[in-house]
């Protein structure tokens, strides 16, 4: 490339895409919040003031302390402690870690499976398409939570009891992915059917490119835009489903709690006046989901040429 041509990075910075991002204050804040929560969760072992899972450091003397600013609060425990003397802030940091991990991993699996099914269905059509899409119809006709409950119930039933805690994360990811891949599949199938008929794909067929090669090199890059939008919005949804499942007691165990588990556990103390144990994890969940959703909304608009 010649020296005076602007670099790809400079071109990207100058693009309408980045411009619309910089101009939308809501999106900027949402991104900032999301990134902070993700960073905090990632760095939990280093920035958390306490290790909520190290039983040795827990002291019942510190139990049920209110937040630091309230009467009777302890500056060591910024957001207070629960009935076992666990620091709520630390528990939230570690809990976000689990929630985000479940979210990202389940989105990843759902995306890979959904995109693959969508590409194959849309490109080849016919019987394959009919079978895949009827399966998708069936999946869509059940409420997501119901399917997730069902799947996690079945897996739990199939596994020996002592494995439940270790398998909880995998079960959650599986349950969420199996209920959300349909959205990717349907969207990608639709776009693939459009792209398949485009003349650039015909040109590739004329030079003898294989179907697999056309799908990966030509079609996939052109159908990923909407997939990114769904992935972002589904990340928020996956975190919520995880929280719901954990809240219902079929998700992460209290020994390795996610935000949902924290809310469930805290919920039991709400009426005894210990509000901080449930309120702060709930707030974190709301803020995280809201922020990710706002990013998804912006992404959808920014990638939609009709709204430019």
């Amino acid at each position: 490339m010649s020296a005076d041509a602007p670099s790809r990075f400079a071109v990207l910075l100058d693009s309408d895409f980045v411009y619309s991002f910089r101009k939308s204050r809501v999106t900027l804040i949402a991104t900032l919040v999301t990134v902070s929560i993700i960073m905090a969760a990632l760095l939990a072992p280093w920035i958390a003031p306490h290790d909520p899972f190290d039983v040795a450091t827990l002291s019942l003397l510190d139990s049920e302390l209110p937040p630091a600013w309230a009467e009777g609060g302890d500056p060591h425990f910024l957001l207070g402690t629960d009935n076992q003397g666990r620091d709520v802030l630390s528990a939230i940091l570690y809990g976000s870690r689990i929630s985000l991990a479940v979210g990202f991993v389940s989105v990843f699996f759902a995306l890979v499976a959904g995109v693959a099914v969508g590409l194959i269905s849309g490109y080849f059509g016919g019987l394959v398409d009919a079978i895949f899409m009827r399966i998708a119809d069936v999946m869509l006709s059940f409420p997501t939570i119901l399917v997730a409950l069902l799947v996690s119930g079945i897996v739990r039933g199939a596994l020996p009891r002592e494995m439940h805690e270790n398998a909880a994360l995998a079960v959650l990811v599986f349950a969420i992915a199996i209920t959300t891949w349909v959205q990717y599949a349907r969207t990608v199938r639709g776009s693939t059917m459009v792209e398949r008929g485009q003349e650039y794909v015909l040109a590739a067929r004329l030079v003898g490119r294989s179907s697999a090669s056309i799908i990966f090199r030509h079609i996939l890059p052109n159908v990923m835009g909407p997939v990114l939008v769904i992935a972002t919005i589904n990340l928020a949804m996956a975190i919520l489903i995880e929280a719901t499942l954990s809240f219902l007691g079929v998700g992460m165990p209290p020994t390795n709690p996610s935000l949902g588990t924290l809310i469930r556990v805290g919920n039991e103390y709400l009426f005894s006046g210990i509000w901080w144990v449930v309120i702060f994890p709930s707030l974190t969940l709301v803020v995280l989901v809201l922020a990710v959703n706002l990013m998804g909304d912006w992404l959808r608009d920014a990638l939609n040429p009709k709204l430019r």
């Binding site: 650039y200 015909l202 040109a203 004329l206 030079v207 003898g208």
Partner: peptide, 27 residues
């Protein structure tokens, strides 16, 4: 024979399309 097959002959027959906006992969 499908498009592109056999290569030795299909190489010798190519196509120009109608829509210059759809015939080139934008990526």
């Amino acid at each position: 024979r499908p498009a592109g097959d056999p290569p030795a002959i299909r190489r010798r027959m190519q196509m120009i399309f109608q829509d210059p906006y759809a015939s080139l992969n934008p990526r």
